[in-house]
Amino acid sequence: MANTAVADADSGLTRAQLAARYGLSVAGARPTLAAYVRQLWAYRHFISAYAHAKVTASFSQARLGQLWQVLTPLTNAAVYFLIFGVILNTSGEVENFIAYLCVGLFVFTFTQSVALGGVQAITSHLGLIRALHFPRAALPFAITLTQFRHLVTAIVVLVAIVLVTGEPITLEWLLVLPAMLLQTVFNVGLALALARAGSKMTDLKQVMPFVMRTWMYGSGVLYSVQNFAKHLPTWAATLVELNPLLIYIELFRHALMENAPLTSAAPRLWLLATVWALLVGIGGFVYFWRGEKEYGRG
């Protein structure tokens, strides 16, 4: 009865045929992958403005304001140094433990914050998603960019720490740049994948902190993972060796420190880092794109 109330000039046609006849498109249909990439590129200003706004907003309520960008990584490093360097004295086997610890911690924090933010990228922005039209991947991208900016601050702090602890400045330091690039690509993919997973599985948000802590202990942030090899069966040791975060952390250490112990040879590390970045970066993007239609439903 309700359906017949509409006066239809093209009677005889179904609504779908009518839509096709006048070239109407399905509302909210998923664009092709190429079109999606173009849309996202068109929204690059939104992504960078949003990330910048988030960085500014994150400390706006604190009295010390933006100083916390530097203080947060420093305090973090101090706490872990107190426990693992002084109280437990794990520093024994590692030369220049402070620098070793700080590199590991800052690089790990980058991925950790991206992962924790990524899981909530959709759920915490439902209001924005239901109000405005934009490629949803802009949100995980913006989260990664926000954390990237924190990483850049942390790297500046890191360089100061590394210099103070007596490492020489070498050309190898430039290797930090490609390492940052690869880790960022990896993180974008991770954020995208977790954003889609988190939008469907709301329990994931509760589980993520535990996953990240386990990941941290397996990534040689606080101690050398060479200790693992003594107790673990070979397959598990290989698994630890392939851990992408261990690889990125070791690349940073290799770049910034003279005598950093490596689990594999440097070329192998670079190869693995690139493979991980491409695999997770592209995989995560495609996975997220396939769910594009669904994100408004919650």
Binding site: R15, A16, A27, G28, R130, A131, G296
Partner: peptide, 20 residues
Amino acid sequence: RAVAGLMPATRGAIYTQGQP
């Protein structure tokens, strides 16, 4: 919201001209 394409239709379809 559904006409604007912000929420997917669970069943049925919505066709629009351009981007509402």
